[in-house]
Each structure stands twice: as C-alpha cells, then as structure tokens.
Amino acid sequence: MFTVKIVAGVAAQSASLKADALDFLGYSANYTISLAVTGLALQLRARAALLKGASLLLFGLWILGSTVWMAVAGTLPKAETMDSSACWY
C-alpha cells in the first residue's frame, strides 16, 4: 500500500497522499520493530523505541518541508490523481 500511495502522491504532487503513504510505512515498521524486540532486554526495547521515535520525527519533518516547499512554489495537487488513488484500497 505504501508504494501505491507514494507513487500517487508524487504523481499528484500531493503532500497529503505522501503523508498517508508514510503513515502506512510508519505503522508497518512500528509493528515489525515491536514484534522483533518483544521479549528482549529492556535496554534493547528502549533503543528500539528511540529508533521508532526518531524515524517518525524524520517522516514528519520531510512532510512539513515538502508542504512548505509546495506552498512557496505555488504547486497545487492534481485532483484527478488524488480522486483515483482513493479507490485503490
């Protein structure tokens, strides 16, 4: 789902679709990391939580930067692509 949404977001020049794609990626990575460290030492679980938090911060900064860039450049999303991407899932 991430790939479909990110491709549609780039094609439509839509920060919203890219943010949604990163949300999918973030959730799947979060669950994967959480399952991988289940039962490990507390220190390893704390490091995994720090890694998850840092990655979400980077995703958020990327979306914020992308949104500001598009606003300054005056780029508008392509509504045709955004409407059709909503039907993909």
Rank of each mutant, 00 (worst) to 15 (best):
M1Y: 12
T3Q: 11
V4Q: 12
I6D: 01
A8G: 10
V10T: 14
V10G: 09
V10K: 05
A11L: 02
A11R: 01
A11C: 04
A11N: 03
S16A: 06
K18W: 03
K18N: 04
D20H: 02
A21N: 01
D23H: 06
D23L: 05
D23P: 07
F24S: 13
L25N: 05
G26M: 05
S28A: 09
S28L: 08
A29E: 06
I33Y: 09
S34P: 15
S34C: 10
A36R: 09
A36Y: 12
V37R: 12
V37T: 13
T38W: 13
T38F: 12
T38A: 15
L40Y: 12
L40V: 15
A41S: 10
A41G: 11
A41T: 12
A41L: 12
A41I: 14
L44P: 09
R47S: 15
R47I: 11
L50F: 11
K52H: 09
K52Y: 08
G53K: 04
S55Y: 09
S55K: 04
L56H: 03
L57Q: 08
L58W: 13
F59E: 01
F59M: 04
F59Y: 05
F59R: 00
G60Y: 01
L61Y: 07
W62H: 06
W62E: 02
I63R: 00
G65H: 06
V68Y: 05
W69R: 07
M70L: 14
M70R: 09
M70H: 13
A71F: 13
A71E: 08
V72D: 11
V72S: 07
A73F: 08
G74L: 05
T75W: 12
L76Q: 03
L76S: 08
L76R: 03
L76I: 03
P77S: 01
P77D: 01
K78V: 03
A79M: 05
M82H: 06
D83E: 02
S84T: 08
S84H: 07
S85C: 04
S85P: 05
C87Q: 08
C87V: 10
C87I: 08
W88V: 03
Y89K: 04
